[in-house]
């Protein structure tokens, strides 16, 4: 097996506020091969987006990466630790080798700049290209993401686009410099269902074609089930389970993962036959997390041992990881 493109090791990103440190990301680890899609799944508030921002080094004050390493490798096996880089070197990587698609396409494009400008500047920020070259590239990438009539649409402002079209523009911006890694932060949740399906299938195609690796952030396990090769499940700032998609879906070992799977409406089943499973309780506030396992207050398997924080244990084969004292039955890690 090749060495992974991206390795996140024990990442900790905390927000140091007057009310105390908010541990938005607390001990997150996963790795990702070139050309692979990784699903990062969790409820809102579980630290998914901040993990994405941490990789790019764009966490806003008072947030700060306080621990761990984010390692990015290039093809020649040279590696950089992203969170040790200075702003200047990081800037050269952002939008160039690592891109990101933000959640809300209505908010992430600048309302007063033409679409063309917003694409072209991304090229010009990273390579010595002429304006016309950059424009050609922009038209090309817009066509690839399925925007009709790209030459004309370059001149348009974001408000002239529908939500789905804007998200295609955002995807085009991410793709334009042919990055090694794209972090997609729930890029389809703000869209209606038909557009969602359309964009998802196009992204699937792009992922196959380009050899770009994707981190697909979502709260919806169903979305990544057909998209990702690996899935990392996050809860309250921590990765609680990691594994190959099919293995993880068929044999969930963390009670939280099982809860997530059970809450997906099953295919071909009559709605009346099967009641959707609900995980009891709410996501805890990151400000006053309980000691020990954060899920224990909602967990039916919780015991006395759960007052102590379990560690993320990686299986001997290295393809499965779990953070639980009382895992569900399955092959032992």
């Amino acid at each position: 097996m090749n060495r992974p493109l991206l390795e996140v090791r024990n990442l900790q990103t905390h927000f140091l506020t007057s009310m105390g440190a908010i541990r938005a990301v607390d001990d997150v680890s996963f790795s990702l091969q070139r050309g692979e899609v990784l699903g990062l799944v969790g409820e809102s508030g579980s630290g998914k987006t901040i993990t994405g921002y941490s990789i790019l080094g764009v966490v806003d004050e008072p947030g700060r990466i306080v621990g761990g390493e984010i390692v990015l490798r290039d093809t020649e096996d040279g590696e950089v630790v992203l969170n040790h880089l200075g702003e200047k070197q990081l800037r050269r990587l952002r939008g160039n080798r690592i891109a990101m698609i933000m959640q809300d396409p209505m908010m992430s494009l600048n309302p007063s700049l033409r679409i063309g400008t917003q694409l072209v500047e991304t090229v010009l920020a990273h390579r010595q290209a002429s304006r016309s070259e950059a424009e050609r590239r922009a038209v090309d990438v817009m066509r690839r993401v399925g925007i009709p009539d790209p030459e004309q649409r370059m001149q348009a402002f974001p408000h002239e686009f529908s939500g789905g079209m804007r998200q295609r523009v955002a995807i085009a911006i991410a793709l334009i410099n042919e990055p090694d890694l794209i972090i997609a932060d729930e890029p389809t949740t703000a869209l209606d269902v038909t557009t969602q399906v359309q964009i998802l299938s196009e992204v699937q195609k792009l992922a196959r074609e380009t050899g770009t690796a994707w981190i697909w952030i979502t709260h919806d396990l169903a979305v990544v089930a057909g998209l990702a090769q690996h899935i990392a499940v996050m809860y309250a700032g921590k990765v609680v389970e990691f594994g190959a998609t099919e293995d993880l879906l068929d044999h969930p070992r963390h009670p939280y993962t099982r809860g997530l799977i059970a809450s997906i409406p099953g295919e071909g089943e009559l709605a009346a036959d099967r009641r959707l499973h609900q995980i009891p309780g709410n996501t805890p506030s990151l400000l006053n997390l309980p000691e020990g396992c954060a899920f224990r207050t909602r967990c039916d398997r919780a015991g006395a041992q759960c007052d102590i924080q379990p560690m993320l244990e990686t299986s001997s084969a290295g393809d499965r990881a779990l953070r639980c004292w009382h895992p569900l039955e399955g092959q032992s890690p």
Partner: peptide
Amino acid sequence: DYIKLARIKGLPSRRIVVVHALR
């Protein structure tokens, strides 16, 4: 968000401030 995206795109901070924000 669009300033965040401008940072994510790796634009120089001068351009983010003058072109994206100030405008």
